[in-house]
Design a protein around this nucleic acid. Structure first.
Length: 108
DNA sequence: TTAATGACCTATC
DNA sequence: CGATAGGCCATTA
């Protein structure tokens, strides 16, 4: 069991219309300092289509500059299609679509 | 084993 | 607001 596996499991748990940050995933994975490792894990992305890497954005909501899906626009379109709201800066509205780390329907 | 890499984050100027 | 510097960790060659 490598850290990548954990990261993949968490990324796969991100519901539609929501986005998570690298730091958040790292924290959910167990250590808050795996943000870099998270990026590396998604970089290899061994199983695209299964891992919604397009739902992972930076802390400020900006998309990855060197995206490997076919361009930044691709990711933006996918997120918009899922219902993620964007700002005028081409950044994700974290206030509205930031994943709290819980599954749907689980609001304490 | 050592060295190098990276889709990050925070702090400072 | 933009740019710069440093730290942190696992994975790979």
């Amino acid at each position: 069991m490598t850290v990548f596996e954990k990261i993949y499991e968490i990324v796969k748990q991100i519901p539609e219309g929501k986005v998570a940050t690298y730091g958040m995933i790292a924290q959910l994975a167990g250590n808050p300092r795996w943000a870099r490792v998270v990026g590396y894990a998604l970089h290899v992305n061994p199983e695209p289509g299964v891992i919604p890497c397009h739902r992972v954005v930076s802390r400020t909501g900006s998309l990855s500059p060197a995206f490997a899906f076919g361009g930044e626009n691709r990711q933006k379109q996918l997120l918009l299609k899922e219902g993620v709201s964007f700002q005028e800066d081409d950044k994700v509205n974290l206030e509205r679509c930031l994943w709290n780390g819980l599954k749907e329907g689980e609001t304490p």
